[in-house]
């Protein structure tokens, strides 16, 4: 995709058109690839036009959507399942687990609007548990891209690997934070800022938030490292342990429940072998109040301001 990033000016782009192009490339290359949708074909725009026989709209029926994907994959097809994240995860949980992931089938789930992305559409449309749900399924890779560039990397990686994968996409426009010319590292994440005495591990919209915090802290002479994770499972445990060895504070920033997210994975990686201050910025253990996405993120302290103040708090407690 072509994205012009004006110096100093944030640029925003939706993930879906970019991913639609990736899916078309994949369908051009692999005649076995089939794309399924659930009354939403934005992600299949190209496949639908150029390979209409390989796009199937299953309707608003997520359980059947995933069962059909299972049958296609069992017959040797590579399948991409596109749906809104909350309904995919919650309505088809059993089909995802039993019929696709347990069998290790080549199915890539693309969930639009995971986390708090649907904002004011409310609790029925929030899905702050999607990454943890998929991460709890053995053999399943889980991606949470930060922007449209990252989303293309994630979908290519998901399709390339054997077995099932989940990719969470944003529902609206996401700020471009990645440089399309940088080499992508699905396994280890991208170290976008080298750490000084603190490191932020971030995924999804958390990456831009961590970068904002790092830039503002840099003005005060303090260096916050930013490790951006496109893939949250497998989690780059060894890389985090190596990076953390030189820092006093590790923070995680994610639009996901603290349970089952990168905060939990980072804590598990560091427990018992690393000493320092650890803080998480994640969705709390309650149901989100009314609010747009920005308001909800602020409610849960998932903002650059809160990351900065969290560092100050850990400084104070360091005593």
């Amino acid at each position: 995709m072509n994205t012009v990033i004006a110096a100093g000016q944030p640029s925003y782009a939706p993930m879906r058109p970019a991913v639609a192009n990736v899916l078309l490339e994949a369908a051009d290359t692999d005649p076995r690839l089939v794309v399924l949708g659930a009354d939403g074909h934005a992600l299949a725009a190209g496949v639908r036009e150029h390979h209409p026989e390989r796009y199937v709209d299953v309707g608003i029926a997520e359980a059947n959507l995933v069962g059909v994907a299972s049958g296609l994959a069992r017959a040797g097809r590579r399948v991409v399942v596109c749906a809104m994240a909350p309904f995919l995860v919650r309505r088809a949980a059993e089909q995802i687990r039993n019929d696709v992931c347990n069998a290790g089938l080549n199915v890539t789930f693309v969930g639009v609007g995971g986390g708090l992305g649907y904002g004011t559409l409310g609790p029925t449309h929030h899905c702050p548990e999607d990454l943890g749900f998929f991460a709890a399924l053995p053999y399943t890779r889980v991606y949470c891209p930060a922007d449209a560039i990252d989303a293309c990397w994630a979908v290519r990686s998901a399709l390339a690997g054997p077995g099932p994968a989940y990719v969470r996409l944003g529902a609206r426009e996401d700020r471009i934070v990645h440089d399309p010319d940088k080499p992508f590292d699905a396994a280890g994440g991208l170290l976008l800022r080298p750490p000084g005495d603190a490191l932020a591990v971030a995924t999804g919209i958390g990456v831009g938030i961590a970068l904002d915090a790092a830039d503002r802290l840099a003005d005060t002479g303090r260096q916050l490292g930013v490790l951006a994770l496109t893939a949250v499972k497998p989690f780059p445990r060894e890389r985090l342990v190596a990076l953390a060895a030189g820092v006093g504070t590790v923070l995680t920033v994610e639009e996901h429940l603290e349970t089952g997210g990168i905060g939990a994975s980072a804590a598990r990686a560091l427990a018992g072998g690393w000493t320092g201050r650890f803080a998480t910025h994640a969705v709390g253990d309650d149901y989100p109040p009314l609010g747009d996405r920005g308001e909800l993120l602020a409610h849960y302290r998932i903002t650059a301001d809160h990351v900065i103040s969290s560092l100050s708090d850990t400084d104070r407690t360091r005593g």
Partner: peptide, 25 residues
């Protein structure tokens, strides 16, 4: 069998996917 089962209500969807794959083939 072409698929493991046990939770009820799964088989017909999987069968539909197999039937669709046969048609595509």
């Amino acid at each position: 069998v072409a698929a493991g089962t046990g939770a009820l209500g799964h088989g017909l969807s999987i069968g539909a996917g197999l039937a669709l794959a046969a048609r595509l083939d």
